[in-house]
């Protein structure tokens, strides 16, 4: 399987918790940027791809027609009959723009909802209200999106398990088929790192996670990855490819790719990217040891786990209640998921 990822590092405004590369107020660069992405795509030989993903940033900051043109051009080189996702922020779309996107060929939309409580959205300095977010989901559905994903955040200061369940319940009553749930973490170089809001104790944070999982499962969403839940058949194909160590072409400033056994990273600097002929800033040729470790690091995040390869640390971790057999596979237990990093380290040491 191979995916195509396009990074669109533009936002209306940077969120205070976000460490991903993006810039705001760079409208004038949109055309040149898109042009450069297309140019970059020509470095890769034409081939069919299984999934396409427009991520950011906030791709929907770009005019929908520009996104449409970009997708159309890319599809000429990389035909795709599968999942084609665009990320969207409720504050940047309208019924009309959603229709354009749907018609352009995007068949999946990932909406940055984060919360359906307004005080939490204010804390996160999101540019939309809970009502806006709900409306965007409905609009997307009306525009013809049948595969709608929503992001949720938990582990916010002062948040309770009930608060988390509230947002989850509300979401599940809307036409969404997939939910990604992320715990707030304070990243270096973000405004939150400076303000350092007091995050909940780990114990409390886990309670929120459990509450969220219970609530989602109650609505028929199954956990298929540590942070991801879906109605059966709606698991994100593009992201699953990452966990399976599949290859993907990455285009755009700050994009990551993995092709022909090489992981690469493009320059983060928008202007440098636009003016470059070779955008790659970092390249790692994977060794067998790298591949071995990545298989555990990424694959174990999936609920179905990975094929048991006889790793001698496994029995001990099973006894400790952190791993379990699952057919031919081993997978993390619920306790194991809480401390996945620990388990993975134990497996590859």
């Amino acid at each position: 399987m191979i995916g195509l990822y396009v990074h669109l590092p533009f936002c209306l405004r940077k969120c205070p918790y976000c460490a991903f590369y993006s810039v705001s107020g760079a409208e004038s660069l949109f055309p040149a940027y898109v042009e450069r992405v297309i140019q970059e795509s020509r470095l890769f030989s034409p081939r069919p791809v299984d999934t396409i993903y427009f991520g950011g940033g906030t791709p929907t900051v770009l005019p929908p027609t520009l996104l449409k043109d970009l997708l159309a051009t890319l599809l000429e080189r990389f035909p795709c009959n599968g999942e084609i996702t665009v990320e969207a922020n409720p504050a940047t779309v309208s019924p009309a723009s959603l229709q354009i996107l749907r018609r352009a060929g995007f068949n999946r939309i990932s909406i940055g909802v984060q919360s359906l409580k307004n005080e939490e959205l204010q804390f996160l300095e999101r540019l939309h209200s809970a009502e806006d977010a709900a409306q965007t989901i409905l609009d997307a559905s009306n525009a013809g999106f049948e595969n709608i994903s929503a992001d949720l955040m938990f582990g916010l200061p002062g948040q309770t398990p009930e608060d988390v369940a509230f947002s989850a319940d509300q979401l599940c009553n809307l036409p969404v088929s997939h939910i990604s749930a992320y715990s707030l973490s304070i990243e270096d170089g973000t405004p939150f790192a400076v303000r350092s809001p007091e995050l909940p104790e780990e114990e409390a944070e886990r309670e929120m996670y459990y509450s969220l999982r219970r609530s989602l499962e109650g609505h028929g969403f199954l956990q298929y990855e540590i942070s991801n839940f879906a109605r059966p058949g709606f698991e994100a194909m593009h992201n699953t490819n990452y966990w399976l160590c599949g290859e993907y072409i990455g285009l755009g400033a700050g994009a990551h790719g993995y092709t022909d056994g090489v992981r690469y990273e493009n320059t983060c600097d928008l202007k440098a990217y636009i003016s470059s002929t070779d955008a790659v800033a970092n390249k790692t040729v994977l060794t067998d040891a790298d591949r071995y470790e990545e298989r555990y690091m990424l694959g174990l995040r999936l609920r179905k786990g990975i094929r048991y390869d006889g790793n001698s640390n496994v029995p001990r971790l099973i006894r400790a209640g952190l791993l379990e057999k699952h057919g031919e596979n081993i997978r993390l237990t619920e306790r194991g998921m809480d401390i996945a990093n620990y388990v993975i380290t134990e497996l590859i040491i």
Binding site: G3, F20, G55, S185, Y248, L298, A340
Partner: peptide, 19 residues
């Protein structure tokens, strides 16, 4: 006891932080 040791985000296939 260790209660939580897990990374959530993996946007856009960026696995460098995990690594």
């Amino acid at each position: 006891a260790l209660r939580k040791d897990v990374l959530a985000k993996c946007y856009g296939g960026d696995i460098t932080r995990k690594k």
